[in-house]
Amino acid sequence: MLAYRSSGFYHLIMKVKKEIDKSNVKFDLNLRWYDYFFLLRPVLWIPVWTFLFLGYFWGSALETFNFTLILPWKFWAILGLYSLMMSSVYIINQIVDRESDLINNKLFLIPYNIISIRTATIYAIILALVSLIVVYFLGVKFVILFILSYLLGMAYSVKPVELKARPIADMLANAIGYGVLAFLTGWAVTGKIQGRAFIQSFGYILFVSAVFINTTIPDIQGDQTAGKYTIGVFLGARNATILSSILLFLAFIYSFLEFDVFLMIPSLVGLPIFIISIWDESMQMAKISYRAVSFLFVLMVALRFPLFLALGILILILLRIYYTKRFMINYPSLTGR
Rank of each mutant, 00 (worst) to 15 (best):
L129A: 14
L129H: 03
L129P: 04
V130Q: 05
V130S: 08
S131I: 10
S131Q: 08
S131P: 13
S131R: 05
L132Q: 10
I133N: 08
I133G: 09
V134Y: 03
V134S: 04
V134P: 09
V135S: 08
V135E: 07
V135P: 08
V135A: 09
V135I: 15
Y136M: 12
F137G: 07
F137D: 10
L138I: 07
L138H: 09
G139E: 11
V140H: 12
V140D: 10
V140P: 01
V140S: 12
K141I: 05
K141F: 00
F142C: 11
F142I: 09
F142P: 07
V143K: 04
V143T: 10
I144Y: 13
I144L: 15
I144Q: 08
L145V: 13
F146H: 02
I147H: 01
I147L: 15
I147N: 03
I147G: 02
L148V: 10
L148K: 01
L148N: 03
L148F: 10
S149H: 05
S149F: 06
S149W: 02
Y150I: 06
Y150W: 15
L151N: 05
L151C: 11
L151G: 14
L151Y: 04
L152H: 00
L152T: 01
L152A: 03
L152R: 00
G153F: 01
G153W: 01
G153N: 11
M154I: 15
M154V: 14
M154H: 05
A155Q: 03
A155V: 03
A155F: 14
Y156S: 00
S157N: 04
S157G: 08
V158K: 02
V158N: 03
